[in-house]
């Protein structure tokens, strides 16, 4: 039971990150490797707001959401927009994304340095007991916010006009622009949303662990989570994140924590082979 609760709390953060991946994948069908760097920058923004300006948790999250969102939009404008207009193969977009990730990560490394920073304590080190297992306040809060945010996004995508436009774009971008949708703006909105989720995930990761330049590495897990759920599917991203969180915690509790990452990657490879569309993904056409 304890393992399950811990797993779910880690899984909540994985889901937050996976949503960003899935959103961008669904609209541009490439894997945005720069997402991890955006999460990392979100965490640094949150950290700066918390330590320099002494803002409260709510404001820190809000600031980080806006900051990471803007970075993400900017990233798209600079690194992907030109390729997108030229209809370059997704391989080029991926290489460009990889370049962005390397650039951002190492620029932080070169300017701010490789020091580990900790957030000030927002939560008392108190534990809540839940069905006989203990859970820290932070984990409870992070989990609730994660699920809440994903639910809100789901509502946004299904109920608002912009949301409908996004779904239309996912289906057929050319058709969508013929119907009078400004696709450039649409893509910017999608990148802003993905960045916003990256900001929340970054702050939570920073509070739960620490803030350092390569923290974006955890997004490999998020990528796995997104693949488990099926890239491009929001409920899939949520489910994938939770499943991965629980499975990983099970492996590190009962087998060995060293094997945890090997396990995740093995699972990814196995999954890609037998279930390449994930649990809730749509049929992917491009096969190499």
């Amino acid at each position: 039971m304890q393992t399950l609760v811990t797993g779910l709390s880690v899984g909540g953060i994985y889901s937050l990150m996976a949503v960003g991946y899935s959103l961008i994948f669904s609209i541009l069908s490439f894997s945005n490797f720069a997402h991890g760097a955006v999460i990392m920058l979100g965490a640094y923004i949150g950290l700066a707001l918390a330590t320099r300006l002494h803002w409260g948790l709510g404001l820190v999250v809000a600031g980080s959401v806006v900051g990471a969102g803007i970075i993400s939009v900017f990233n798209e404008r600079v690194a992907y927009a030109a390729l997108r207009r030229r209809r370059a193969p997704s391989l080029f977009l991926m290489i460009s994304a990889m370049g962005c990730s390397v650039f951002l990560e190492n620029t932080v490394y070169a300017t701010i340095g490789s020091r580990f920073f900790a957030f000030p304590e927002f939560f008392r080190r108190e534990v809540v007991s839940l069905w006989g297992s203990s859970l820290s306040l932070l984990d409870l809060f992070a989990f609730t916010v994660s699920v809440g945010a994903i639910f809100a996004l789901h509502l946004f995508i299904t109920k608002t006009k912009t949301g409908i436009a996004i779904r239309a774009g996912v289906n057929d971008m050319t058709m969508c622009s013929l119907m009078g949708v400004n696709t450039d703006r649409l893509i910017s909105i999608v990148f802003f949303l993905a960045g916003a989720f990256a900001g929340v995930a970054g702050v939570f990761l920073g509070i739960k662990y620490l803030v350092y330049p390569t923290m974006g590495w955890v997004t490999n897990k998020a990528y796995i989570a997104a693949v488990i759920g099926g890239l491009g599917s929001l409920p899939g991203a949520l489910a994938g994140g939770l499943i991965l969180g629980v499975l990983e915690t099970l492996v590190s509790t009962y087998l060995s924590s060293v094997l945890r990452d090997v396990f995740s990657f093995t699972m990814l490879i196995a999954l890609l082979i037998w279930l390449p569309n994930g649990l809730m993904g749509r049929e992917t056409e491009e096969k190499i």
């Binding site: 997704s90 991926m94 693949v227 990814l268 890609l272």
Partner: peptide, 12 residues
């Protein structure tokens, strides 16, 4: 696999 899936698999 899709080319990006393959890249991730080999990264793993």
């Amino acid at each position: 696999l899709r080319s990006d899936y393959f890249a991730i698999a080999i990264l793993g």
